[in-house]
Simulated scan of single mutants.
Amino acid sequence: MVSFAIHHTDRPDAPRRRHSRWFVALAVFVIALAAIVVTAVGGGAIYAGSVASTFDSHVSHLQKAFPADATRPAVSQTGAVNILLLGSDSRGAPTGIGAEGVTDQRADTMMLVHIDADRRNVYIMSIMRDLWVPIPGNGSAKINAALAWGGTPLVVQTVEQLLGARIDHVAIVDFGGLKAMTNALGGVDVDSPVAFTTVKSPHYTFVKGMNHLDGDKALAFARERYAFATADYQRVADQQALMRGFGAKLLSLSVLTDPGKLTSFASAAGSSVKVDQGFTLQAMIGLAASMKVSGMSSIHTFTIPTAGTGTSADGQSIVNVDPAAMARLRTALANDALAGFSG
């Protein structure tokens, strides 16, 4: 990957920009359910079902999450599962998040969670928000504009076209949910790749190495980009570190054996997300029961390969696709063979 500082220049008709808003944690919630089934002593499935039921009683469902089936890749024959995680900047009405038509929402954070066919590994792939890609019906643009121009169905269609892989489930999380989920767990310990101080008040300082973060600090950690010469590249790395911190906390005995913490987290997570209508309680429990993860060594994070930054024909600073690396990624996804891409 080539990393450069990014100066943003949006075209006039593009949706308004704000700072990145949030970080996604639904993936580790699903992983946690699997861990409960595997590790809980006696009545594990009942325990997992109770936590999942709490989540399900709070979660909202997207009325239409996917584009017309004729526009989509074929269903994977490998048995792997792909979950698209999105973050809206939440400037519009909450009921508009994930709407099908034009909205003023942007997907400033985007991740694909790939659960392999044998359910032993989970790959969390970050997609750079300024990646310059074809958006169906809109020409080429930054990928984070798709949510504003066509709602969740257009985001799914854009990502499926980019990766050549079908999305099985979708979740949208708001940034306020990150704070609630972090606090429900009593904070998370995050191994920061670099030391930095946030540019905006209250100017939180993070050391290189382990940091204990409450909800406010976790949100600041996930949002910061101005402190870095490499801007969004470093922010994506930090978000992946935060994801690993969530995973480690959820898979720890201090949480797995604490029904109160798990239930509080499930409630906070459910209140903060919208999922497609097919991602039901039964689907979540079924996915969790099939998992065979062995702790954090089974959870892998990486960033979609890029060719660094550039400038579009209309003057925007963008992140370029690396065509050769993208072709290899598409093949790896199709063959359920992502091990070579993850860190």
Rank of each mutant, 00 (worst) to 15 (best):
G101C: 11
A93T: 14
I115P: 02
M110N: 06
A93G: 14
R106S: 05
A99P: 00
A117M: 12
G101S: 09
A93M: 15
A107P: 04
I97T: 02
T95V: 11
T103W: 01
V102K: 08
S90V: 14
D108A: 12
V113T: 05
H114R: 07
T103V: 05
D118K: 15
T109M: 10
V102R: 07
M110H: 04
V113P: 00
T109A: 05
T95G: 12
N121P: 12
H114T: 07
A107Q: 04
P94H: 07
V122E: 02
A107V: 03
I97F: 02
D108I: 10
D118P: 10
L112H: 00
I115W: 01
A93P: 14
N121K: 15
I97V: 07
D116T: 12
R119M: 13
D108Y: 13
D89I: 10
Q105H: 15
R91L: 09
A93C: 11
D118T: 15
V113Y: 00
G92F: 06
D108W: 11
D118A: 15
D89E: 14
E100P: 04
Q105K: 07
A107C: 13
I97P: 01
T95M: 06
D104Y: 05
R120N: 12
G96E: 11
R120Q: 15
E100T: 07
A117P: 11
M110I: 11
T103C: 04
E100L: 04
D116R: 08
V122N: 04
V102G: 05
R91A: 01
T103N: 06
S90F: 09
A107L: 07
V113K: 02
V113N: 01
M111R: 03
E100I: 06
T95S: 15
M111T: 02
S90G: 14
R119Q: 11
H114A: 08
R106H: 05
L112Q: 00
G92N: 08
A99K: 00
R91Y: 03
A117K: 13
A117C: 13
G96D: 13
D108G: 11
T95F: 12
G98E: 02
R120H: 14
T103I: 03
R91V: 05
P94Y: 13
P94M: 09
G98T: 03
H114C: 06
M111K: 02
D104P: 06
S90T: 15
I97K: 01
R120E: 12
I97M: 02
M111D: 01
S90L: 11
N121R: 15
V122A: 06
G98L: 03
R106K: 13
G92Y: 04
R106I: 05
V113E: 01
G92K: 09
L112M: 07
V102H: 06
H114V: 06
L112N: 00
N121H: 15
R106A: 05
I97N: 02
T109E: 03
G101D: 09
G98A: 03
H114G: 04
M110P: 04
P94K: 06
T103S: 07
H114S: 08
R120Y: 15
D116E: 12
D89A: 12
G101V: 07
P94Q: 14
R91K: 11
R106E: 05
A93W: 14
N121E: 14
M110S: 08
R120S: 12
P94E: 08
I97Q: 00
G96M: 10
